[in-house]
Design a protein around this nucleic acid. Structure first.
Lengths: 135, 135
DNA sequence: CTGTAAATAGAAACAATTTCTATTTAGTAT
DNA sequence: ATACTAAATAGAAATTGTTTCTATTTACAG
C-alpha cells in the first residue's frame, strides 16, 4: 500500500482521498475494472463524484506505473493493478471472475524481426477460466 | 475475386455494388482500413453513401470470413482482408504504410493451460516496420 | 496557517458506433 | 421480361465511451 503512495509522490501526483479509494478498490478486488465500474464503486463512498474525474485518476495511476491498461474485445478501457512493475509482460484474464494475472513468458520477446518487419511493439491478451472458477 | 462472391452467397448475403466496391478496395490497397477510411473512398464512387451502411457491410464481410477485424491501439475498428481463410493466425501491421500480413506461427496454439487457466481465446497484434518502408 | 499548483464536479463537447424508419434494390419465382 | 419479397440502403437520431472546459475546492510545501 505504502509503495503505491510513494509512486504517486515520485511522479509529482498528490495523494487524494479519491486516489486512495481507487487504489484500495483495485487491491481488494484483485481484478481488472473499467472506468465505469470504478465510478460505480466510488459513488458508494463519495456522494459527489464524477466520471471524468475517474478517467483522469486512472490515467494518473497508469502514468506512475500503479495500474496497467488491459485491452479487451470491447471498446472500453480496462485497468488492473500492475503486478510485475515495469518488466515486459502480458495478461491472462479469467472470463468468469475478471481476475487478471501476469504472464511473464513472452513468445515475441527477443525476436527482432518477423517476415522482414522490424518489430516495434506487440500486444497479447489471453482469456481463459481460472482454476477456482472451473471446479 | 470470384471466391469472395461465393462466400457472400454461401452466407445468404447479396452481392451489391457497395460490397463489390468494398472488396475491390481491400484487394487493391492490400492493407487494413478503418470504417471511416472505407467511407471516404466509397464516397468518391457513390454520391449517396452513408457511414452506417459501411459499418453494416464491414460486419457482413466479417461474418462471411472475407474480412478480419484487427485490433489497433486506438478505439477505432480496423478491418483487413482475411488471407489465411479460417485458419488460426495473427497479424503484423506496418506502422508506416498500414500493410497487414498474417503470422501463421502462434506461440499459444496447442497450449491448453497457462497458470492453471483453461485457455478460451487469445489475441495477438504485432506492430513493426516492413522491409520496403525501412530502406 | 497561508499560498499555489493540482485535483475536483458537472456541464458540455466530442468521436465512434448503433439503431430506427422509410425507401430502394438484388435475386428468385413467375 | 416482370413482379415479388427479403435484404440493403441513406440519413437522421440515439447511444456509448471518453475528453475538454470552467469555476471551485483541496493537498501539501513553505
Amino acid at each position: 500500500m505504502e509503495k503505491y503512495f510513494e509512486k504517486l509522490k515520485n511522479n509529482g501526483f498528490k495523494l487524494t482521498p479519491r486516489r486512495r479509494a481507487i487504489i484500495d478498490l483495485f487491491v481488494s478486488c484483485g481484478s481488472h475494472l473499467s472506468p465505469e465500474m470504478v465510478w460505480h464503486k466510488l459513488k458508494l463512498k463519495f456522494k459527489r463524484c464524477g466520471l471524468p474525474g475517474v478517467y483522469r485518476n486512472l490515467e494518473a495511476l497508469l502514468k506512475c506505473g500503479i495500474l496497467v491498461r488491459i485491452q479487451q474485445a470491447d471498446r472500453k478501457k480496462h485497468y488492473g493493478l500492475c503486478v510485475s512493475g515495469d518488466n515486459h509482460h502480458h495478461h491472462i484474464t479469467c472470463i468468469k471472475c475478471g481476475k487478471v494475472e501476469d504472464i511473464k513468458d513472452c513468445a515475441i520477446r527477443g525476436i527482432d524481426k518477423i517476415k522482414g518487419y522490424k518489430i516495434v511493439s506487440h500486444f497479447m491478451q489471453v482469456n481463459g477460466i481460472c482454476a477456482s472458477c472451473r471446479e
